[in-house]
Design a protein around this nucleic acid. Structure first.
Lengths: 226, 226
DNA sequence: TCGACGGCTACACGCGTGTGTAGTACCTTG
DNA sequence: CAAGGTACTACACACGCGTGTAGCCGTCGA
């Protein structure tokens, strides 16, 4: 569980247990939690599938181990970046870091799968975002909604790397593709897409729609039955 | 396949086939494509699982049918909104519409699952976004990356409704919660989050990192082996 | 009236999955 | 040196899945 404070990989990580965790992290990130199989993880780690169970007990426990490991790695990378004074990158913290790229992808997948740990981190990111917003005197109509959308949007980018890669013509798992993606994020968050008039119009449209919800001929398609 | 040009549900849609499609759409949207089972869809539609196969042939074919149906519905809603002159909403087109909410969620799930149809729509949205950007004289450093990130961010919001709902304290599947979420989106896309200085700094940081990629002690965790 | 066909059901098959169990090699410890 | 436990493997089990098959029932045209 404990890893040396940065620098090189801890010696413990040369063990089969660490190889399994690393392989799981990678395969979970690539395919998603559900579709990934214990057997494939074991194969990637060069061990038997029984050993995975021996070390982690169950698939969910393995996922939990990956969660806390990824969270830990991200926290360390964040610390490191703060120490190096790259505070400007905080919003997109660590995303150029090769390991951080992987961890972000994994955490997005884990969040999509319904991980409690990833959800906790999600909430934490929202709190941080809210804090950042008030510190920078950005006061939208709905602070919480703003922060939530902001965070979920970031996660979304990491949750669909195949789509972004295809659209960009460059694999975002490479540093080059990742940098292009991050530039895109920076630009989206720096150039406003909507003019004040458009914004006001859209807010008005939202108000209008909320005042009298639209009728829809396909009620049965949206009915909330079990 | 063909549906009456708006208004009420087509009579065909009272058939079991339509009920199955609707149930599939809803369950796919709720749980994701992979975890959803034919048997549960059949149960929700009030038919036997065999009938699902009888009408659609396979799970993937059912997914395809849902794809094209959802795409069609979204296109019609878009047309309708254009006809009503609500062009201001185009960026977040139809997302307050109860059916559109469902379709958006479904399409996000389908995209996450690797649907070709959803991917095609994704690319189309990117094209539209690029077009919209040049029309409004927004010229970021990387137009394609901007558009791709913009679209994937929108999809991300619909791909993780549980997370947003939890953060907001309101179910985004209700009109109220959805409206809050949409306000958040509007605000994110209208208020720039980064100052020009921060933007320049981050771009510089990206340049710097790309010039000499960061060393990482956890190379083995990111190695690209199968 | 009758036959055929499409909507529909019940049930069985094979497969891959997570999980459980038995057993082996090795390393540590008294 | 003996003993025990840990790392590790091979194999089997039960379950749920998508899929396949056989057959029933109502309707509609000749």
């Amino acid at each position: 569980m404990t890893v040396d404070p940065a620098a090189e990989r801890a010696p413990e990580d040369l063990t089969a247990r660490a190889r399994i965790r690393d392989a799981a992290l990678r395969i979970f990130a690539e395919r998603g939690i559900g579709p990934a199989t214990i057997r494939d993880i074991a194969k990637a780690a060069g061990v038997s599938s029984g050993l995975v169970r021996h070390h982690f007990g169950s698939k969910e426990a393995l996922r939990d181990a990956c969660d806390s490991y990824a969270l830990d790695r991200m926290a360390r990378i964040r610390e490191q970046m703060f120490a190096e004074g790259r505070v400007a990158d905080q919003g997109f913290m660590g995303t150029v870091h090769p390991t951080a790229m992987l961890m972000q992808r994994y955490l997005a997948r884990s969040l999509l799968d319904g991980s409690d740990a990833a959800a906790a981190r999600f909430d934490e990111m929202i709190l941080l975002s809210e804090q950042w917003l008030v510190e920078h005197d950005i006061v939208p109509r709905d602070l919480r909604a703003y922060a939530a959308v902001f965070v979920v949007m970031q996660m979304g980018v990491f949750a669909m790397p195949e789509q972004v890669s295809r659209a960009l013509g460059t694999d975002v798992r490479t540093p080059e593709g990742n940098a292009r993606m991050l530039r895109g994020m920076v630009d989206v968050f720096s150039h406003p897409l909507l003019t004040p008039e458009q914004t006001a119009q859209t807010h008005a449209a939202l108000d209008r729609v909320l005042a009298h919800p639209p009728e829809d001929g396909a009620r049965d398609a949206a009915r909330p039955e079990e």
